[in-house]
Design a protein around this nucleic acid. Sequence first.
DNA 1: TAGATTGTTAATCGATTAACAATC
DNA 2: TAGATTGTTAATCGATTAACAATC
Lengths: 222, 222
Amino acid sequence: MNKEFILRLTKYKRLIHKLKSLGFERVFSNNLGDAIGVTPALVRKDFSTLHLSGNKRGGYNIDMLVEEFDIILGRNSPQNVILVGCGRIGQSLMNYPGFVSDDIHLVAGFDLDPINVKDSTSIPVYGMDKLENYVTENDIKVGIIAVPGDEASSVLDKMVSVGIRGVLNFAPVELKCQKYDCDCPCVIQNVNIGLELEHLFYQVSTQDTDFTAEREVKDKKE
Amino acid sequence: MNKEFILRLTKYKRLIHKLKSLGFERVFSNNLGDAIGVTPALVRKDFSTLHLSGNKRGGYNIDMLVEEFDIILGRNSPQNVILVGCGRIGQSLMNYPGFVSDDIHLVAGFDLDPINVKDSTSIPVYGMDKLENYVTENDIKVGIIAVPGDEASSVLDKMVSVGIRGVLNFAPVELKCQKYDCDCPCVIQNVNIGLELEHLFYQVSTQDTDFTAEREVKDKKE
DNA sequence: TAGATTGTTAATCGATTAACAATC
DNA sequence: TAGATTGTTAATCGATTAACAATC
C-alpha cells in the first residue's frame, strides 16, 4: 500500500537472501533494522503486519522468511516483462545486467519503427501489431515504456487496453493513467531522469547554504 | 529538506513556466493545487515557507514566481553534469532528449575503457585520468554513474574525492556515501530499475487480491 | 532461572489539511 | 461593499518509535 513499506519489503527480501547465502539460520529485528536503516521496532511491526512471526528469544527463522517473502513478493510466479520502444534506451535496457541478478526476465520488445524490429540481441523484437497477442498469450502484466515523449501517452493507452497492469516509464513525460481515473487498473512508475537531476542540483545547492539557515531561523521563532 | 517537498518544488516550477508561456499573469493556490494534485492549503504553506507571497485577492504573480523559482532551484547557475561510464547505458544517456528540454547539459563523459573514449556523439569522452582536472576547472558538482555494478563503489569514491556533490546512480547496486558517514557531503540518488520493477510486480499482484483484503480484516479488528 | 527478544500498545513526530481571520 | 483569496493557526492523520508485558 504505502510506498515506503513496499520499498522496505524489497530490501528485507534482498537482505534475507544474502544472509541465507552466508549460512545464517536466524536473525533478529535489530540486525535487520541496522542493515536497512530503520528501528528494530519497525521491523517487528512490518513483520507483524505480514503475519511473519518469530521466536521470543530466537529471532526469525531465515528459511521461513525466504519462503514467505518469495510468496509475498510474488516470486513464485514468473517475473516477465515486455518492452515497448526499442531505440537507444530500449536497447540498453535489453542489455541491462541488473535484470539477471534480480531474476526479472525481459522477454520481448515491441516497436513501431520496423528498423528496430530485429533480433540484434537475444531478445526478440516484434512490431506493435503483435503486442496484443503476445501479452494475452503469455499473460504479461508488466511493461516498460522507452519511446519518445510524444508517443508515450498513446503507447500507454494501448498497453493498458491489452491488459498491462504495471508500467515503468522512461519517456521524459510524466504519465498518469487517466482512462479509469482513480480506480485505475494500471500502476505507473515514472523514471524521469531530468527530474532526478533537478532534485540533485537543488539538494547540492542548498546542502550547506542560506536556505537551510533561513529555515532554522524560522524554526526558532516558532 | 523533505523529499516530497523538493518534488513539489520542481513540479511548481515546471507548471509555472508552462503557465507563463500560455500568457497567464497570475495564478491561485487552488489552480496550482489541482494541477499538481495537492490541496490549495499546501501550496500556500509551501509558498509561505519559501517566502513567496501573493495578493489577498489577486493570487500569485507568475513573473515573480518564475523568477523566484529559478533562484530557489538554482536555475541561474549552469546545470552542468558529467557522466562516468560510457557503455551502453551511458551512451543512451548522452542521447537522452529529456535533458535538452530540462535545460540540463551533459557536458562530458569519462570511461576507464579506452574503447569507449571517442567522440562518437557531440559530447566528448575522456579517460578517467582527466576527471579531476575537468571537474575542478569547470566547477562540476553533479555527476551520473553508469558503470557496471562492481565498479560503481570505487567510481563513487573517486568522484566524491574530486569534488562531486550529487550523484545519480544507474549501476544496479545501491550506493551510499560512507566516507564521511551521516555528515556526507554527497547526495546520492539511486535509480535501480530492478527495484522499480519489483515494486510494480508487487503492486500489480496485490492490486485487488487477498493481501488488501487481509489488511482490511485486520483494520476492522482495531 | 536470568537474560534476551518478540509482539503490541500508547506516545511521538512530522506532514498535511481544515478553518478562519485578515485584507485586497 | 461584497466576494474572493491569502497566510497562518490549530486539528487531523498516518507513520514511526519507545516502552514494556509476555515468554522462550
